[in-house]
Amino acid sequence: MLFQSPTPTRFDLNFSFFGIPVRVHPLFWVIAVLFGSSSGGIVQLVTWVVVVFVSILIHELGHALAMRRYGISSNIILHFSGGLTVPESMRWGSGLASVALTPNQEIFISLAGPFSGFLLAAFAIMGTLVVGGSVTMGTLLLVLPVPVNVVLPFGVAVLNSFVLNLLWVNIFWGIFNLVPVYPLDGGHVTRYVLLKADPLNGVRKSLWVSVIAGISFALIGFFLLGSTYMAILFAFLAFQSYQALQSSVGGY
């Protein structure tokens, strides 16, 4: 299923980042290339793939560092549908313990990913302005801030493209990651907010929110943004949440 950890392969790229194991599945590169196939040239395509790699890695690093704050070790997997931070254990003092996180801690971990991306975008904007460049922002659907143009004083088009893509991925993708659809970060946040208000039925209510929001954003993607991919993705996630509702028992 979507967003699940893929089986390791001998073609995986493995390394450590801030002491956190990272595994990159080969399909990650394939999907990144497909998304950037309309970039207009090999240099632009490579720039796009680097931006996607760095952005998703920083996003997942945010989750991993937030987990570390609460004594949880984790590993990061970049795969065909993005990234995943997998908790390994929870450490308290010198031993191991199976102590559940509070809803507020779960919310913090969920928000740490997209807000790490927003922070990266903020640094990119500040860096551009400091060196004498400019960043032009616009809006999508009248409310969503999106980067329109970046001009650096060095006269190198690929650098302008790199920063523009970096801003686009971390701002636009970050915002949509906060949509209350499970298993996106916004879906996790909604789940734990509702669990705080209603411990018995909070998860079930969050799944209904996920179904409704998923269908809504599928329609927005198809009719307002002209994105078939976005429509299919959110429709699929809404269907997954509906299946979870159908198989739920009792308070779940």
Rank of each mutant, 00 (worst) to 15 (best):
Y192C: 03
F162T: 04
F239L: 14
S38M: 12
A32F: 07
Q4T: 15
S110R: 07
V33W: 11
I215E: 09
G95A: 14
I125G: 06
S116W: 02
F123Y: 14
T228A: 13
P180L: 00
A122Q: 10
A235D: 00
S81N: 07
G133L: 15
G155P: 13
T139K: 06
G117L: 05
Q246Y: 05
L129F: 12
I58S: 10
V22S: 02
G202L: 08
V49R: 00
L152S: 06
A66K: 13
Q243E: 00
F17G: 01
Y252N: 12
G214Y: 01
S89H: 10
Y182I: 11
H79M: 01
A100K: 08
M1S: 15
S247Q: 14
F162Y: 11
I31F: 03
G127I: 09
S39Q: 14
F176H: 10
I31C: 00
L141Q: 04
S98G: 01
V33S: 12
V203A: 13
G36F: 04
P147S: 03
N165L: 04
S73E: 06
S89E: 13
N201P: 08
T190S: 14
A64N: 10
S94M: 05
P180Q: 09
W92D: 12
D185W: 09
N160M: 02
A122K: 05
T139C: 02
L140D: 06
N160R: 03
G155I: 09
S39G: 03
V52C: 08
P87A: 06
T136S: 11
Q44V: 05
E106N: 14
R10K: 15
W168Q: 14
A231T: 03
G251K: 00
G40V: 08
P147C: 03
S210C: 13
W29V: 14
F118D: 10
L144D: 03
G83N: 07
V50I: 14
I171P: 09
H59Q: 05
Q105I: 04
I42V: 15
I56W: 09
V203E: 15
P199G: 04
Q4G: 10
V49A: 06
S206G: 04
M90L: 12
E60C: 02
G186Q: 00
V181G: 01
L167K: 00
V151W: 03
G251M: 00
F234E: 11
P180M: 10
L140K: 05
L142W: 13
D12P: 11
F18L: 14
G95C: 01
A213I: 07
D12C: 11
G71F: 09
T190E: 07
E60S: 05
F115W: 07
L219P: 05
G133Y: 08
P114V: 03
N160V: 00
L84A: 03
V33D: 02
L233R: 03
V189A: 06
V135D: 11
A244Y: 09
S73Q: 13
H25F: 04
V209A: 15
G138P: 11
R91E: 02
P114F: 04
P8H: 08
I175W: 10
F234S: 00
V211T: 10
G62L: 09
G155L: 10
G36C: 08
L237C: 09
Q44S: 12
G187R: 04
K196G: 12
F108I: 12
F162E: 02
R91N: 06
S5K: 15
L57E: 00
F162R: 15
G202R: 04
A197P: 10
G251W: 02
N177A: 07
F217L: 07
W173P: 00
I76Y: 04
L159V: 02
P103Q: 05
F80Y: 10
T139P: 07
